[in-house]
Design a protein around this nucleic acid. Structure first.
Length: 881
DNA sequence: CGATCCCGCCACATT
DNA sequence: AATGTGGCGGGATCG
């Protein structure tokens, strides 16, 4: 009908602008004539697209106003209005004629014709299911709404659901990026895994009930109870926030609900989910009292979601007959297994895989999650943390970019929720801007990040010493699973939730090595699989990608974390690198998350191999102008860094090399996944591996999800070093990691515990946290000096980072500066973003991990209490000193 | 009459 | 203040 109308209407009809009388008007002639086959035909088969395409173009060209008018007119008028009102034109006449009475009826778009499902089909018809990776399709809400002839509100309904499955991602206001179904299986897998954790029991419970029992409310209540148990996991993302932050929690609902709904199917044995069960489960409320109205509303939403999912061919409507009668239900008809990508699988594989492939991965997750869960439960703090987050997407430009929040918190949470949470998390994270612990990586821009280069570059190696990188599962996992479009690997594509986030520290041991893993997954770490093979592969891939990547960064956030030398280095590097990219990179980026861990584990080989920085996502289309800022900040640091570095060893080019590298990184994307720092001779020998994951590329933003940048740090004690390395977690974004805001935080999980801590006592500086005196003596040093330099970086950074001084000399002789990082620079600094709670959580986590003492001390000292803002202030003041 | 679910008000978030 | 988002539920349709 649209077409039809348009032909007539469109051309002119400015006449009636009437907004939308439409439907009602039609009433005038209530009669119905079944006849008019013609029209009938038209309606039912509107064709869509072609004609529209032209329109669309025109429209887009037109101003919004115009668009709207037209849109309305087109849609509605033709049908109803035309006859009545104006229609002076001859053309209209035609219409009129046609329409006349008959049309009304026919035209009147029956409700079904306007159904969301149908609309969704039209929507989907406009985009290829499997778009070429090269081309990105952006979707303009206005445009689409106009074309499809619906109000924008409806488009949101569709897009939100699609977004929950990562078929699209929000790029900016009114703009979405179409990803197609490339990642669908991955997404579903992630959801399944998350669902396993969260809903398996419930679903089982319900289903049995249904079968067995009539299932009454009372029973339901029981169920609800169960829910409550689960909630922690599930809810946290949502509900928690809601309560805590008054923010606005609403947001998530449709997206989240959609994910949860899908999870139910994936977890269900029968693959059939009745609406009422789904509604109950999804009513977070928890209460038993399922308010009827609430229930009703939930069901309404589920219908909305179901319509979209049906259009996607993932579910179909069925009816389940029970004692009570038939109940509406939906059956999953989409893929059930998601083989492909289990990222985790790799890691785990070596060990045991009792389960068949896919499952294996799932199992792993499950375990991880479980672990995480436990933790969560233990720590009430998490909740608070969560609440804090509350924010959502902030930046219009990057809607979902993933950001990390507090590490620990997230980690645990993440683990639990995994995919589901992911989005929320992302959002939250951003908002929070909390700092991810490791802001190192991340740099500046919001989500984009730059990468970071490492200074020295190229050290090949890793240290062998690294004992075991492996982390306990629970610990770090986090994940952010979804990556949107990222083809590349950067994120953990699999979505696995991984870990990580814990690490908020940076290590500066001059001598030590650092690995930064970008974006990837922490999982790796946890997994700690050394298999070189994988690593190699990944690397290889990464390498390939390397050069091109462009970084995006957003100036908005600049690198914040100057604090550690490392950070500094990065920025500097970036600058330089930007210029040139000749030098080999010290950083190795593993495209795939997995790798990173491996690399660590198999330090020698892997590390060395990794030479390049790779940028994962070249996609980032957006160039990074921001760099400049970074550069600036970085430079100052550089000098220092260089010095440091020089100490270290890089014969090659300490400085220059770095620079190059950095640039490269920057250019690429930020994705450097690992950074290796060689230890210089003098320094204590600690090796650190950082995973800087970062953000997947700018693009990611879109993806948003994956922010998982967690950077896990592994500290490997080099053999002897008596000296203790310091690790600082700059929460802020460190230059190094490109990571996107959210992600970077990465968790640096401290692998320490595992490997090295014991031997050496590393000092960790949490962003917020402080250095503990205890730490090794050596570190003590430098507080100031280093700090200042760092400070130099950018004002921003300065704010973000606080340099901490150590009371006790921890480090060996080196001057180590500990910096506190506050927030991730990348994240927007808005107060909102800041969240104190996070910090707390953050700390706690670490404590749990390993050496609590230090942490605790730190906590106490600083920040904990202070709000982020306060912290900043404090820090800033302090740092200069 | 219950199942669906369109429609669009309106609150909240972003610009 | 304007505009973007999207929760929400009244009430119209469908079956």
């Amino acid at each position: 009908e649209n077409i039809f109308d348009r032909s007539r209407m469109a051309p002119k009809t400015p006449i009636k602008n009437e907004p939308v009388d439409l439907s009602k008007q039609k009433g005038c002639t209530p009669e119905r004539n079944p006849i008019t086959p013609v029209k009938a035909v038209d309606r039912p088969q509107p064709d869509p697209w072609t004609p529209t395409a032209n329109l669309k173009m025109l429209i887009s060209a037109a101003s919004p106003d115009i668009r709207d008018r037209e849109k309305k007119k087109e849609l509605f008028r033709p049908i109803e209005n035309s006859e009545q009102s104006d229609t002076p034109d001859s053309l209209q006449y035609d219409m009129v004629d046609d329409c006349t009475v008959d049309e009304f009826e026919k035209q009147r778009p029956s409700r079904k014709q306007k159904s969301l499902g149908l609309l969704c089909q039209k929507f989907l018809a406009r985009y290829p299911s499997y778009p070429l990776s090269t081309e990105k399709t952006t979707i303009s809400l206005d445009e689409v709404a106009t074309i499809l002839g619906v109000e924008r509100r409806r488009i949101y309904d569709i897009v939100n659901v699609l977004e929950s499955l990562q078929l699209v991602s929000r790029v900016a206001k009114n703009q979405y990026c179409w990803h197609g179904r490339h990642n669908l299986s991955q997404t579903l897998k992630t959801l399944q895994e998350a669902g396993e954790l969260q809903y398996r029991e419930l679903m089982t419970f319900f289903q049995q009930k249904e079968q067995d029992l009539e299932y009454k409310f009372g029973e339901r209540k029981k169920e609800t109870i169960l829910d409550s148990q689960d909630r922690p996991l599930l809810d946290f993302p949502e509900s928690d926030c809601a309560s805590a932050s008054a923010n606005s929690r609403k947001d998530k609902s449709l997206r989240i609900m959609s994910q949860k709904f899908v999870m139910l199917f994936l977890v269900s044995k029968t693959k059939i989910v009745t609406l009422d069960v789904a509604a109950k489960i999804l009513i977070e409320e928890t209460q038993d009292t399922v308010d009827h109205s609430k229930f009703k509303t939930k069901v309404r939403r589920l219908y909305d979601i179901a319509n979209v999912l049906t259009s996607l061919g993932l579910i179909k409507k069925v009816h389940v007959t029970e004692e009570r009668g038939r109940k509406p239900a939906f059956k999953w008809i989409g893929p059930v297994e998601f083989p492909g990508k289990t990222d985790e699988t790799r890691g785990h594989s070596p060990t045991s895989d009792p389960l068949p492939g896919m499952q294996r991965g799932a199992c792993a997750l499950y375990q991880i999650c479980a672990t995480g869960k436990q933790r969560l439960t233990r720590h009430a703090s998490f909740n608070s943390t969560q609440s804090c987050e509350g924010t959502r997407r902030k930046v219009s430009s990057e809607p979902n970019s993933p950001r990390q929040e507090t590490q620990d918190e997230y980690c645990s949470k993440m683990v639990n929720l995994a995919a589901v949470c992911r989005q929320k998390i992302e959002e939250d994270t951003r908002n929070r801007s909390i700092i991810s612990p490791f802001s190192l990586l991340p740099v500046p821009g919001d989500s984009d990040f730059c990468v970071n280069p490492l200074p020295q570059a190229v050290f090949p190696v890793v240290q062998a010493d690294v004992p075991s990188l492996s982390l306990p599962n629970g610990v770090s996992s986090q994940a952010l699973p979804l990556h949107p479009s990222m083809p590349a690997a950067s994120r953990t594509e699999n979505g696995k939730p991984t870990l990580l986030p814990n690490q908020p520290f940076l290590c500066f041991p001059s001598s030590s090595l650092f690995m930064l893993c970008g974006g990837v997954q922490e999982n790796n770490l946890q997994e700690t699989l050394p298999t070189t093979g994988d690593v190699g592969n990944s690397r290889a891939e990464a390498q390939a990608t390397v050069p091109p990547a462009a970084c995006q960064k957003r100036s908005s956030h600049k690198c914040a974390s100057p604090s550690t030398p490392v950070d500094d280095e990065e920025p500097a590097a970036k600058k330089r690198t930007m210029e040139q990219s000749d030098v080999p990179l010290s950083l190795v980026v593993s495209k795939k998350p997995f790798e990173s861990p491996k690399g660590e584990s198999a330090p020698g080989s892997g590390c060395t191999s990794a030479e390049h920085l790779e940028a994962f996502h070249p996609d980032l289309s957006s160039p990074a102008a921001p760099e400049a800022a970074d550069k600036e900040s970085a430079k100052p640091l550089d000098s220092q860094e260089r010095e440091k570095w020089s100490q270290n060893k890089d014969p090659d080019e300490p400085s220059s090399g770095k620079e190059h590298i950095s640039k490269e990184n920057a250019n690429q994307l930020f994705l450097p996944q690992y950074l290796y720092v060689q230890p210089t001779a003098g320094l204590s020998s600690l090796n650190f591996l950082f995973s800087a994951n970062q953000a997947p590329g700018p693009i990611n933003l879109a993806a948003s999800q994956l922010p998982s940048l967690s950077v896990p740090c592994v500290v490997v004690p080099s053999a002897a070093l008596a000296s203790i390395p310091l690790v600082c977690s700059p929460t802020i974004t460190s230059p190094l990691s490109p990571v996107p805001d959210g992600s970077f935080s990465a968790a640096t999980s401290m692998n320490f515990s595992m490997s090295g801590l014991a031997s050496t006592t590393p000092v960790f500086i949490g962003t917020t946290a402080v250095v503990s005196p205890k730490v090794s003596p050596a570190s003590s040093v430098d507080h100031q000096q280093p700090a200042q330099p760092t400070l130099h970086l950018s004002p921003v950074l300065a704010r973000s980072c606080g340099a901490v001084k150590l009371d006790s000399p921890v480090c060996m002789g080196h001057p180590v500066t500990l910096l506190k990082l506050q927030q991730p620079s990348s994240a927007p600094l808005t107060p909102k973003s800041i969240r104190p709670a996070c910090h707390e959580a953050f700390f706690k986590t670490p404590g749990s991990l390993g050496d609590p003492v230090a942490w605790k001390k730190n906590e106490g000292n600083q920040t904990r209490n202070a709000t982020s803002v306060q912290r900043r202030l404090e820090i800033s003041s302090t740092s200069p000193d």
